[in-house]
Simulated scan of single mutants.
Amino acid sequence: MRDFRHDHSALALNTATLGHNVPGVGAGWSPEQTIDACAERGIGGIVFWRREIEERAAEIGDRARQAGVKVVGLCRTPFLVGPLGLQSEEAILSDFRRSIDQTAALGTDVLTIVVGGVETGTKGVTRSLDIVADRMAKAIPYAEACGVKLALEPL
């Protein structure tokens, strides 16, 4: 078994473990502070959440690389189904493309998809899974064109 007590270079920090760094929530660190903390501790990778990077993806990706920290992924797309997501398919797919653009701008190639819950007005997961598959099929060509892999969390 690998011993990480003295070498953290193979580890990646998902910023959710800090409580999501947005004003008033979690550690409250800026992306730059999070990057610096990882670099100081020898942590080799970082996964940001979209709400932490907003429209600064390219800048934050550059900063991480300059600090010697690899951005290994971005969390997350909009929920593709369920009551907590965006209401229209058009809005969902538009935000999905935006999340793909942010992933590419960060300089990473993995975008996590947290699909959501059971679609409103349906029973069980079968119809919801069909909707997820349909929306994924619509986004995959764009993701491929941007060089982004989609990492699917289960429903």
Score class of each variant (00 low, 15 high):
residue 125 V to C: 11
residue 112 T to N: 11
residue 106 L to Y: 03
residue 90 E to F: 09
residue 73 G to P: 01
residue 55 E to P: 12
residue 144 E to R: 14
residue 102 Q to D: 15
residue 26 G to V: 07
residue 17 T to C: 14
residue 154 P to E: 10
residue 128 S to G: 06
residue 149 K to V: 08
residue 7 D to I: 03
residue 31 P to N: 04
residue 68 G to C: 14
residue 116 G to I: 08
residue 103 T to N: 02
residue 95 D to Y: 09
residue 104 A to H: 06
residue 130 D to M: 14
residue 144 E to Q: 14
residue 140 I to L: 10
residue 104 A to E: 01
residue 155 L to P: 01
residue 81 V to F: 03
residue 109 D to Y: 13
residue 134 D to S: 15
residue 17 T to R: 13
residue 126 T to L: 12
residue 2 R to A: 10
residue 101 D to Y: 08
residue 131 I to K: 15
residue 135 R to I: 02
residue 28 G to E: 08
residue 6 H to K: 15
residue 147 G to L: 00
residue 111 L to D: 09
residue 31 P to V: 02
residue 100 I to F: 03
residue 13 L to R: 12
residue 109 D to T: 14
residue 139 A to S: 02
residue 34 T to E: 02
residue 130 D to P: 06
residue 110 V to T: 10
residue 25 V to S: 15
residue 109 D to L: 13
residue 18 L to M: 04
residue 53 I to C: 04
residue 154 P to R: 06
residue 105 A to S: 12
residue 18 L to K: 00
residue 73 G to S: 02
residue 19 G to Q: 05
residue 155 L to S: 02
residue 40 E to D: 15
residue 61 G to I: 00
residue 6 H to W: 08
residue 152 L to E: 00
residue 24 G to H: 04
residue 97 R to A: 09
residue 153 E to W: 09
residue 33 Q to C: 03
residue 28 G to M: 09
residue 144 E to I: 09
residue 151 A to T: 14
residue 99 S to C: 14
residue 146 C to L: 06
residue 90 E to G: 09
residue 112 T to R: 10
residue 117 G to R: 04
residue 139 A to N: 00
residue 52 E to V: 02
residue 99 S to G: 13
residue 114 V to P: 07
residue 77 T to M: 08
residue 94 S to Y: 15
residue 143 A to T: 05
residue 20 H to Q: 12
residue 66 Q to K: 15
residue 106 L to N: 05
residue 67 A to F: 06
residue 136 M to S: 04
residue 30 S to V: 03
